[in-house]
């Protein structure tokens, strides 16, 4: 039933999958992520250093939909959203560098960056 092309095709895709996972791991291993970035419409709403959070904090994202982001020491998540699919809430807690949670309908996302990337905005 399967032909030669099928096997080659799946082989190429599996190679791509392994490379993708490898790339994600490589990115995550540089250092421990502790800067959470909340973005919407390509605009950074808030940058939070997750190591310095002592008591839980909430951040609201407004837009087409309303979302509540919950921040605790070392981790962050979409706690609640009124968007149709709620994929962002189901993603759960983010705590490692490279982790992302996305809400497409609201163009909002949280991602965790490493400490080194704090230098992104510095101009010399």
């Amino acid at each position: 039933m399967l032909k030669k092309g099928d096997i080659i095709l799946v082989g190429i895709i599996v190679l791509g999958i392994l490379m993708g996972f490898g790339w994600n791991r490589f990115n995550a291993s540089n250092d421990t992520g502790n800067i959470a970035v909340i973005k919407q419409n390509d605009r950074v709403i808030k940058r939070i250093n997750l190591d310095t959070i002592n008591k839980p904090e909430k951040v609201e994202i407004l837009g087409d939909y309303k979302e509540v982001v919950l921040v605790e020491k070392g981790r962050i998540r979409f706690e609640d959203a009124d968007c149709p699919d709620k994929v962002c809430v189901k993603t759960g807690w983010l705590s490692n560098k490279g982790d992302i949670a996305v809400c497409l309908p609201n163009k909002a996302m949280i991602k965790i960056e490493g400490e080194s990337e704090r230098l992104d905005g510095v101009a010399y």
Binding site: I13, G16, I17, G20, F21, N24, K39, N41, D42, G98, D99, I100, V102, L104, K107, M109, K111
Partner: peptide, 17 residues
Amino acid sequence: VFMKDLSVMYYLPVLLV
């Protein structure tokens, strides 16, 4: 393109599986 953020590509390997 929509999110103007390439880090969405993080999901690619899982989506390929």
